[in-house]
Design a protein around this nucleic acid. Structure first.
Lengths: 207, 207, 207, 207
DNA sequence: GATGAATGAGTATTCATTCAT
DNA sequence: TATGAATGAATACTCATTCAT
């Protein structure tokens, strides 16, 4: 399907991918301009459509490609022996920071998929997402040791609280991105603050 | 600034506001069409731009106007005698549901501000948000009784956890909106589930 | 439907119509460029689409409008008392020349409808054509005096021969348009030549 | 000029020709896509433009080549001993039907030349047509026995009438193509009807 | 001879905004 | 105050043609 694209010069490939995920992440599917993408990538109008039938195919390719890379990273970096949910979340957080530093727009793009997704692509994303994303994502928490939670607590709700708290924290950090440098965000101080949140939650939700 | 608009026939005013927030909420800032707005409001193109210099000014006016109305409702409906944070949050949740039932587009509009916010208006919203929204929002929690929290706990972080959890829960509920009716969402069962979350948090974070 | 357009300044209206029928007649529906039309008409891109929803609506409007004008002219100029087919054809020929001199592209446009009609508009034209064009066109020959034809001759075939001959002659004349001026074509010499054809046919097909 | 092409593998040559005349016949010069032609012919884009400088040259080559083949057939099949114009025309009509059944796209292509001919190629076709087509076509009628025509009749005009009538009849038949099968069109009934037209004309124009 | 990546001007249509009335 | 005609840059996408391999 996209073999033509994937067999081309790697450097140009990356220029196109970066330009495209940046544009889509910033403006959403509908408002993303293929004009801007080719300008930023330094290629001609025709070439983009030589590789991708249309804007939608480009978007769906990026979706699958980014998820693939994300999943590969997860499988590679997570220590699956460690069953404690807080340790697992800490690993995921470090992973995110790592990806953030290499492909900063990638996480924004993945996030934007859930935010915007115009009707034009929503159905396709949903059908592909159900197979790919969720199955792999569930794996992240499928083998967690649940015995450490307080007796009587609704474990599903407890996990939700942990999740929402970390999401909220990450979002708060991201808002500072424009003023802070990535280095500062990925610094010890940020990690320390996260640890403090995790500690409060562990004290609260574990036996 | 917008006094010209605010002094006009109230009924036409509302037609314009309703048409505009509906369009913006449904399509986001960039994709919202002023053509659609004037058609829905039953006014001419010229008139819209007579009252509002441009699309952006219209959007920013709506933002401020909606926040104003929201704040008025809050001030009116919150029982300020009650200082317990969990009780306060419960009141806010009920308030949201109440507004949702009366002006469904209004909350969609406010929500859409955070979801989409194209780069074209993001900066303006952020700067005004800091003044308007946060100052009023802070008032919601300025007189909270902090003595009930566990000794030694970082209270700011504890409040964040409560906040993010409720946000996460609300977001989860919203995702069901397309399949569930508003009545079902605002039902006892939803409120019960929220109570369970609040109970876990109170058990965890209070002395 | 097109009242907005028909109520505008007549001179600009005509500039648009002339530019459009010329472009459609020369290049056919698919290849006609709305860019060229607005350039030739001296209006902006937006204005054309302000009056006509899209290219197809413009084409269909022109079709109906041109047929209308053509039919009005026919009803006005034909002497319906005269039942002889050769006299009737002569009147029609004179009529065509007259129209040719006033709206030269109009007849080309009408002719082009039958020649090209891309699949994009064919169905719409056919359905509208059956009502409008054919019913009125049949009227042109509905009250002809058939008693003058040779006994035993197949009258339908005889009329076809007259028709095809005059069409062939007109086509031959048109091919000379690029080299000859309209004045020369509409001259006595051309009419004389046509008379000679009609005379051969009358001698041949009448008693 | 096109010797490079004509010296290549005959089978590939035919694949290209067939793909090209089909595309041109179906869509007309302007809308024919060289992309489609190379896809259908199974060759690369570059190769097409290696043999033919550009789309126009390809079209003009096809025009000349098809006329050549057509003329060869004519020279081969016409009985030149028979000098009667009506008999000659009957032979030509049969010839057309024969070709129609063997190379249906070829006649479609030749026909399409007259129908669509975008301004881009019209001039070139016209100038070449005068040399090629007409010279050969004139041969078809150069040795006709003119002595049978009525005394005093303008023979050139009489021949035109015969020609236009047969053209008109053929065109009328063609319009039925979409609903009728080729077999039905080339049936005895069609030929019979043509005979009736020829008979009327012979009775009218011969002594 | 043969490939197909690459180009950029071209297509129809939209839309915020202006301005004469 | 109110209208809506008019603008032109922007949109996604196509396509004949070139050229390095």
């Amino acid at each position: 399907m996209f073999s033509k694209f994937l067999n081309m010069d790697k450097e140009k490939q990356d220029r196109i991918i970066n330009a495209a995920i940046k544009e889509f992440a910033q403006k959403g599917y509908d408002n993303a301009s293929t004009n801007e993408i080719v300008k930023e990538a330094g290629i001609s109008k025709g070439l983009l459509f030589h590789y991708f039938q249309n804007k939608k195919q480009l978007y769906l390719f990026l979706y699958e490609h980014m998820i693939d890379i994300l999943m590969d990273k997860i499988m590679e970096k997570i220590n699956w022996e460690e069953k404690d949910i807080f340790v697992r979340y800490r690993q995921i957080a470090l992973l995110k920071i790592e990806i953030y530093q290499i492909y900063p727009e990638m996480l924004n793009f993945v996030k934007s998929i859930y935010k915007d997704s115009s009707p034009a692509v929503k159905i396709d994303i949903n059908s592909r997402g159900k197979e790919l994303f969720e199955s792999s994502f569930n794996k992240l928490f499928s083998d967690i040791d649940l015995s450490k939670f307080k007796k009587g607590i609704d474990i599903k709700k407890a996990i939700n609280i942990i999740n929402w708290t970390l999401e909220g924290f990450a979002y708060q950090m991201q808002e500072k991105v424009s003023s802070l440098s990535l280095e500062q965000i990925a610094s010890d101080k940020t990690m320390e603050e996260m640890e403090e949140y995790l500690e409060i939650l562990r004290d609260s939700l574990y036996e």
